[in-house]
Design a binder for these strands. Structure first.
Lengths: 231, 231
DNA sequence: ACCTGAACACCGTTCAAGT
DNA sequence: ACCTGAACACCGTTCAAGT
């Protein structure tokens, strides 16, 4: 959540540019040329300054990227009309997040395998498609079902790998920036407004252990069950 | 699929090291110190040579990473005993891929949000958890259900973004390496053995258009349906 | 055919100094 | 308090030359 700029002391040299300007310029660069082209040096020149001046406004590039993500979420996420039925509510809410993320693919612009991670995996793909067909799906629906399974699987891996990496980095004494980030969720959960977000507030203390559990297979079974229900 | 090294012409200076040695050394570096520490310079010194000698064995670093992934898949994916029931077969096959990928998280060692992409998203998380509880799940199961939805969603985004990026790069005339990679799947699908992989062989021609379709919502509905079935 | 050394065109970040 | 210039310790890759 972007803090409204802290109460500025009036002493000392006045800033030539603000953190907001830095983030806005960074956003423009990313929108125009992609996240790869966002370098501290280019950002500095586009903001009319030198690389090191940026480090007075952001701790490092990692923090800049987090600010950029937050900025994007704040300006993109729109609360949709909620259907009365809870099941539809789930769909609508998830689809809204999905839509927002889809609008800024640079977040995950990285090496992740497409549907085919390697020829060695084809046999496994065959088993999945075949199983779905044997369960009564058309071949077309079976391919789509496989894709869903792959999405779910890839997502689980990415999320877990990232979480693990952060934990490892947080344990690293020198990496203070990471330690700050690791506690970010804790701070947010501690400040939850029980009136606005009652479910999350009630479960806040259990969130970390619950999400640390390995529930990949549960979710996978649910997804497959769901795919097999004729609709 | 790694070609067995092409028939070597006996003329000319004999190689000091092989492509296999390069990949094996790269694998060791990645296993020991993570993918970030794999640089062409370090790889060169560990292989007892100079950076530029590597470029005689691999086109560039991107190709090296692909070789590494292929190498990993070839040595990690083991075909499990298949249960008779097709639904269980799906689970087992997918879990096997999952297990293989989980063993090399460096593949996706990148910036991807954990479960909390931003404080702005909390409201959406609340809607999902609340909807699941209203549908009869315990709060604990609801949190796990939300995680499943998040995994699926993050995976869809990552996979689609990567595919889109590759398509964009392939259109770039200068980026021949990417163009080669874009046709990799086509070559594999053209060579499918209908006896070994009958489903895939039969659907090969439709694979590209089918997987280009946006089926995010279908899969999401299936996953949610499945999560709501009491098991 | 295979390998080398030097160089190019970059990075993020630190340090010491300036206003 | 805020900004600068120079430098450090790197990158991946190209080029021209050597054996």
């Amino acid at each position: 959540m972007p803090q409204p700029s802290a109460p500025r002391k009036t002493r000392g040299r006045p800033p030539r540019f603000s953190r907001e300007e830095v983030v806005a310029t960074a956003r423009r660069i990313v929108d125009e040329d992609g996240v790869d082209r966002l370098t501290m040096r280019r950002l500095a020149t586009e903001v009319g300054s030198t690389p090191m001046a940026l480090y007075h406004h952001v701790r490092n590039k990692e923090e800049l990227l987090l600010l950029l993500l937050d900025d994007h979420a704040a300006r993109t996420l729109r609360r949709p009309e909620l259907p009365a039925h809870p099941r539809e509510r789930i769909i609508v809410a998830a689809a809204a997040i999905h839509e927002a993320l889809a609008a800024c693919p640079w977040i995950v612009e990285v090496l992740t395998a497409d549907d085919l991670m390697s020829a060695s995996a084809l046999w496994f793909v065959e088993q999945i498609v075949d199983g779905l067909v044997e369960c009564g799906l058309t071949p077309e629906r079976a391919v789509h079902g496989y894709r869903a399974v792959w999405y779910y699987t890839a997502g689980e891996i990415v999320v877990r790998a990232t979480a693990a990496r952060r934990r490892a980095d947080a344990d690293d004494a020198d990496a203070d920036a990471y330690a700050d980030r690791a506690t970010y969720r804790e701070r947010v959960f501690a400040d939850l407004d029980p009136d606005e977000l009652p479910r999350l507030a009630r479960i806040a203390d259990d969130w970390a252990p619950l999400t640390a559990e390995d529930t990949y297979l549960d979710g996978l079974r649910a997804l497959v069950d769901g795919l097999l229900v004729s609709r």
